[in-house]
Amino acid sequence: MRADNTQHLITAAKHRHELTRAKTIRALRELDDVGTAVTFETVARKALVSRPWLYTQPDIRAEIGRLRGLDRQKAEPSIPSRQRSSDPSLRRRLESANSRNRELAEENTRLRRQLAEALGRLRTAGLHDLDGPAPDPVPTRRSSVSIGPR
């Protein structure tokens, strides 16, 4: 009578199953990191496994579904999930931008007020032509200059 080798076969099958799962999870991560669209087809091709096998693995199937949902929600190029901004982070950036806008608006108001005051002082000083050079308080006579070859 032959020896019972079923335990060795079971152990080998479990080992092969775990290797296949690890290879599939690694493929999922690589596809997501690169920004490639994650579908059952791309994962199966990358991991060298069959699509039907992917459907029998609940956790892998759920992760593919989650990543597919993220891909459908965005129109811009794919960004790996670990690099995507969180909602609290985006809110903080928006608050910061709004705060900076308020500061700049206040600075504009202050600078316009200062400019108006400076223009008012120039007008009261009698300098009405603000576009041209300031008039000389004491006119000086300039020497004549000849234009021509030297």
Rank of each mutant, 00 (worst) to 15 (best):
R26H: 13
P58K: 14
P77K: 08
G35P: 03
D4L: 11
I79R: 14
A125I: 01
E41R: 13
W53I: 04
A22N: 10
S78G: 15
D136P: 07
A105Y: 00
L31V: 12
D87A: 07
L67V: 07
W53K: 04
P88C: 05
A37N: 12
K74H: 12
A118W: 02
R29K: 15
T56E: 13
R112D: 08
R102V: 04
G126H: 02
G148L: 03
A75H: 12
T56K: 12
V138A: 03
T39R: 15
G132Q: 06
R61N: 15
R100T: 06
A105C: 01
R112L: 09
P80G: 15
A97S: 11
T140V: 13
K14N: 14
I60E: 07
A13V: 02
A118M: 09
E95M: 05
N101P: 00
Q57K: 10
R51K: 15
H15I: 05
R21M: 14
L48R: 12
G120W: 06
R141N: 05
P133Y: 03
R66V: 06
S89D: 05
Q114Y: 04
R82G: 01
N98V: 04
H8Y: 14
R100I: 07
A62D: 13
N98K: 10
R110Q: 13
V38H: 02
S146F: 10
L90A: 08
E76R: 09
L54P: 12
L9D: 11
R112H: 07
A12L: 13
V49S: 02
R92A: 10
T11A: 15
Q114T: 05
D71I: 02
K14W: 09
I10K: 15
G65P: 08
V145G: 00
L119T: 00
A13G: 01
P149Q: 03
